[in-house]
Design a protein around this nucleic acid. Structure first.
Lengths: 198, 198
DNA sequence: AGCTTGACTGACTGATCAGTCAGTATCTAA
DNA sequence: TTAGATACTGACTGATCAGTCAGTCAAGCT
C-alpha cells in the first residue's frame, strides 16, 4: 500500500464517517488527502470501490484485534469474559471511531446488498463481534457462572446493547459513557447464574 | 391537510426510508405521489422541509400512540408494564415501519443538528420512548417488582435494546422476531427484584 | 542515452438534481 | 358572474458531481 493510497483511504474514512457518503464529493476527498482527483480513480475504480476498501481495511483491523483479545484472554470465568468482551468492544469502537461510524451508515448495508464482496466483508465483521460474546457465554455456561439460555441469541442481544451504547455516543444524544457501569451491572444480572451448581 | 399534500408526504416517507434521502430525487417523489414536481415545492419549501414535515408528522403519531398506551394501561405491576412497553414499542415500530426507518437514518440526526425545530421534534420523539420505560421502572420500584437502580439510565439501556431489535429487523441481519421471547426473558432477569420486600 | 512502466495530474464532460417561475385550472365569496 | 385567491403544472436553469482522458514525470532497465 503506497503512502498516497493510504492517505486517500484515511481522508475518505473521516469524511464518509462525519459527513456521509453521498454528502462527500470526490473533490473533497482529493483536497483533504492532498492528492489529485484523478489519482483517487487510479487507485480505486469508483467511489463505491473506495468505500469497499475502507470496509475491507476495517475487517482486517477488527480480525486482528479479535485475535489479540483471545491471545490475552485471562478470565476467571465466562461471566468475567463477557465483561471483558464488552470493554474490548467499547475500546475498539473508541479507537476506530470513524471506521465504526462508516460501519453504522446505511450506505454500507446498501452496498452489501448489491455487492457480494461487501456483504462477505460486513458479515465477517458482524460475526466476529457476535462470536466474542457467544464464546464468552458458552464458557460461562460450562463453568457455571452463566445461566442456561441460547448462547447465540443472548450474544446477539448483548451485541445490540453494547453497539447501542456506541451509537448513543456517536449521536451525542446522552452522556453515554456514564451508562457504562450501569450497562455492566445490568448485563451481569441478566446472565449471572444465581443457582449454585455445587 | 389536503389529499395532495398527504400523498406527497406518504410517497416521500417511503422513498426516504427505503432508498435514503440523498438517493431519492424530487422527481421520483413527484412520480410516486402522482403530483407535479412544482406542487411539492408549493407545499414544502425545500427537500429538507419535506423531511422535517415527515418527522413532525411522526412526532404527532408517536405522541398519540403514547397517550393511548397510558389510557389502556392495566398492568398488575411495574415489571409487567415494562413488558407491555416493549411490546408497545415493537408494535409501533412495525406499524410505522417506514417512518422508523426515516428516524433511524443519519440524515435526520444531521438535520436536527442544524435545525432547532427538527432537534426539538427528534428530542420529543426520543424522550417519549425513554419516558415509557422510565415510568414503568419507577412504578416497578414503587410496587417492589423491580430492583433498585437509576430509572433513567436503565430506561435508556432498555430503549437501546429494543430499538436494536428494530434495527436488526430493518437490516434483515438476523431473524430478529425470533429474538423477541429471549429479549423479554433477559429484560425480566435484568430488572426483577428477587429479594422479597415483605 | 533511449525506452518502458506505473504513478500521478487536473481540466473537462455528460448527467443529474433542487429549486424557480410563468402560466393554467379550480374554487370561493361577493 | 366575476375577481381574487389558492392549488397546481412542467419546462427550464444553474450548480454540482462522478468519472474520463490525454498527457507529465520520475525511476528502473538495457
Amino acid at each position: 500500500m503506497t503512502r498516497r493510497k493510504e492517505s486517500i483511504l484515511e481522508a475518505a474514512a473521516i469524511l464518509f464517517a462525519r459527513k456521509g457518503f453521498n454528502e462527500t464529493s470526490m473533490s473533497e476527498v482529493s483536497k483533504i488527502s492532498g492528492v489529485a482527483q484523478g489519482t483517487i480513480f487510479y487507485h480505486f475504480k469508483s467511489k463505491e470501490g473506495l468505500l469497499l476498501a475502507i470496509l475491507e481495511d476495517l475487517k482486517t483491523r477488527v480480525l486482528e484485534a479479535f485475535e489479540e483479545f483471545y491471545r490475552n484472554e485471562n478470565f476467571s470465568c465466562g461471566l468475567e469474559m463477557v465483561e471483558g468482551a464488552i470493554a474490548f468492544y467499547l475500546d475498539l469502537a473508541s479507537r476506530l471511531e470513524d471506521r465504526f461510524m462508516v460501519l453504522h451508515r446505511h450506505i454500507s448495508y446498501e452496498l452489501a446488498l448489491q455487492n457480494p464482496g461487501c456483504r462477505r466483508c460486513m458479515e465477517a465483521i458482524f460475526d466476529c463481534f457476535v462470536d466474542i460474546f457467544e464464546q464468552a457465554i458458552g464458557q460461562g455456561q460450562t463453568d457455571g457462572s452463566i445461566v442456561a439460555l441460547p448462547p447465540k441469541k443472548a450474544a446477539l442481544i448483548l451485541h445490540t446493547m453494547v453497539d447501542g451504547l456506541v451509537r448513543l455516543e456517536t449521536y451525542q444524544l446522552y452522556e453515554a459513557s456514564s451508562l457504562y457501569e450501569e450497562l455492566l451491572e445490568l448485563c451481569r444480572r441478566m446472565l449471572a447464574n444465581t443457582v449454585s451448581t455445587e
